[in-house]
């Protein structure tokens, strides 16, 4: 291995860390959040997400079947009939900025931060 190989490895790890923490910090300021579900680019479900949100949403169209469950504010893809099952094995999500994607069925489940968690909101 050349010296540059180690430089590449370190840069890649740094880039991963920067993107990860950047995303975390950018989404930290939100106190309220929304869960949104998109099917083929269209918004099909939207709800305020709190620790007491419970819901089940099923997408069953020509692209396939997906069952999304919200259990005490934690969103997960419970079932899907896609071939790769990547979405079903994805980690459950509960924080702004997180998402679950079922690529073969073009389904995106994402959590967006809504209200800002700082003084500006109060003064407004």
């Amino acid at each position: 291995m050349k010296k540059n190989d180690f430089v590449i490895i370190i840069l890649v790890l740094l880039a991963a860390l920067t993107i990860y923490t950047g995303n975390k910090i950018m989404n930290q300021k939100y106190s309220d959040k929304n869960v949104e579900i998109y099917s083929d680019g269209q918004l099909v479900y939207q709800s305020v997400l709190t620790e007491s949100t419970n819901d089940v949403f099923i997408i069953d169209n020509e692209l396939g079947y997906n069952k999304i469950v919200i259990d005490d504010g934690i969103v997960s893809m419970l079932e899907a009939d896609c071939k790769d099952q990547v979405c079903v094995h994805s980690k459950a999500i509960s924080k702004p900025g997180e998402s679950i994607v079922c690529l073969p069925h073009k389904v995106v489940v994402q959590i967006n931060g809504t209200a800002k968690n700082d003084v500006d909101v109060i003064s407004n």
Binding site: L13, I19, Y38, D40, G41, V108
Partner: peptide
Amino acid sequence: AALVISNINIFYYLPLLLVFAI
């Protein structure tokens, strides 16, 4: 993938994929 699902949020997976690429 971002084009197909018209959602840029798929890049949420990038940091993990970067680490896994090593």
